[in-house]
Design a protein around this nucleic acid. Structure first.
Lengths: 337, 337
DNA sequence: ATGAAAGCGCTAACAT
DNA sequence: ATGTTAGCGCTTTCAT
């Protein structure tokens, strides 16, 4: 590994000149630059970016803290974030936390010790209060797909209320009136917002969401299965159920299959997330897609803006809208009438 | 941000002593350590790991180069690698390449410039020849889920021949004799090996794999769909088809559904990979699982061994075995007889 | 336009 | 057991 000193020696110039030739080419003479280039090629010199970072106090690195990488939900955001960061020449140090608040805290700290200029945090386990507390000391943080009222300008997230509304409106437009829903944990603002949105859209149509048709799940498929069974057992009339995640919809579909309930003939099922999974279910799942890659990418760019202390972030989109991906799990009741 | 100099000043000792108190606690006096601890707490000192790395010539960082993060296949390996590295106190710089040889090359280089002590490479696009060439100059590389004869001791991978055999043996054990297969691209050694394994297991049972029942796919679901249709159109007798990826199996299942072919009553379908996807298909897909998380973790540990130049890697598993995950897409023909 | 010198924050001999 | 002195490989004043 050649160092800048060796290059300088070889080229017969000072290290400062080599540094300039490489980083501020317009400030140095053509001929000198040629000599430097020659030396660089001859020695196969590649600047040590760590030393560079230490001297210039800029690591060009951001940390991404995420629950886990082995699920499409996180994977898409990770992909987006890394892509955004890569596009501006930044590196991504990735760390998973295994759904542990301790892990989230530890990762946050250790990434800062590594001189990450910003941290992209997907905090699942940390509470709003703790987040606020920690954020005070670490202002260079971006929240990915989570909203926190105290630093909304550092949050990139989906408008979950509108997402829930969209779900309701879609179902209404297909003629559904008896609508059930399987939500995420009520401790998650996403779950609450989506429910609020659903309620609003129904209210706009003069329909009140029946509390008996609201089941609280946990976003995972086994709870989708359980909740769907409960709904079926309730004996209540229902023509459609809106699941707040595709995974729960998968479980719900399983339950229907086992109970001999046909989807969408007997009951329509609408998912949320828009993962590849939805496409592979039977019937292919109609779902409300969150643009996770885009959210990740925006988080990456916002992190970059934070890192470089650029004052104007107004060009970076922070609130994203969900959209319906129409497939075959929702029946159009208008057809028959 | 407090520096070590400020801590030293506060504690009334030299920076060297502070450094020792933190890194080699057994070499320094209890009382001095107490003073240092106090200073550290008072100032909220956290060592700058980048400076530390520069001085000690060890970044405690490895790079992971992967096609993309937003698919379960890569995600699982990424998760395993990061976990393995994290367990030994190393950080993971992750970079995706979007299936581009240029990307793989560039990432490899730039991660080295960042002083990664080792690189974990999942090379899809780079050819064996090019890999050999590049490897010469960068011996601190680990190949994740790929085998290269020239540096087998730096490869962590699945035994695909045995995987293919396992698939064949499983199908045979269920009474299948007319077996078709949809492979990956023949340019991939994985695809060739799995086919070889399948052939061997059939040969062991005195059966020759009918060339007309071998369709070359590309691991993606749409090709699974296309190939399955071809198989159906061929009019050949076949009771089971082994798909070399779960995704292709998903496509194959779709094709069957569209053509009115029942799975597993009319045709059995066996997948490969063991992704979550397989579980969510209808019928739930029986598949040959590769332990991707374990492979990733082993790659992480091997990278650590390479980074620390530990001479003995013999405790790190490098060749992994596939296993059958039995679900509902393969019919047991022995039942009826 | 270029060089000399100082320094980023830390570790690692070498002394004592 | 602790302090002194050099660096690690680079950037960045400040001169010239």
């Amino acid at each position: 590994m050649a160092t800048i000193a060796q290059v300088a020696l070889f080229a017969g110039v000072s290290t400062a000149t080599v540094s300039r030739a490489l980083n501020k080419p317009d400030v140095v003479d053509e001929k000198t630059k040629a000599k430097v280039r020659e030396a660089v090629d001859a020695l196969g010199y590649r600047p040590n970016q760590v030393a560079r970072g230490l001297a210039s106090r800029s690591s060009r690195t951001v940390g991404v803290v995420i629950n886990r990488f082995d699920s499409a939900y996180y994977g898409q955001m990770m992909q987006g974030a890394e892509k955004g960061l890569r596009s501006v020449g930044y590196k991504t140090i990735a760390e998973s936390t295994c759904e542990h608040a301790d892990g989230e805290r530890a990762a946050w700290n250790s990434l800062l010790d590594r001189q990450c200029e910003a941290i992209i945090l997907h905090a699942d386990a940390l509470s709003d209060d703790e987040l606020r507390e920690l954020y005070k000391a670490r202002r260079n943080t971006v929240l990915m797909n989570r909203y926190h009222p105290d630093f909304a300008d550092r949050c990139v997230y989906l408008d979950n209320i509108k997402g829930g509304q969209l779900a309701g409106e879609y179902l209404l437009s297909k003629g559904h009136r008896s609508i059930a829903t399987i939500t995420g944990p009520s401790s998650y603002y996403e779950a609450r917002d989506r429910l609020t949105g659903l309620r609003q859209s129904l209210a706009n149509a003069g329909i009140e969401l029946d509390p008996a048709l609201v089941e609280e799940g946990n976003f995972r498929d086994d709870m989708g299965f359980t909740c769907m069974n409960r709904l079926i057992d309730s004996g209540k009339t229902l023509s459609a159920v809106f699941c707040q995640s595709d995974e729960m919809a998968a479980g719900a579909l399983d339950a229907c299959r086992q109970r001999g309930v046909r989807v969408p003939e007997d009951i329509s099922v609408l998912g949320f997330d828009g993962l590849d999974l939805a496409y592979h279910l039977t019937p292919k799942l109609t779902t409300v897609r969150q643009p996770l890659r885009e959210i990740g990418e925006a988080a990456g760019l916002l992190a970059y803006a934070v890192a470089t202390k650029s004052t104007d972030h107004s060009d970076i989109k922070r609130i994203f809208a969900a959209e319906v991906v129409e497939r075959s799990s929702v029946r159009d009741l208008n057809d028959g009438s």
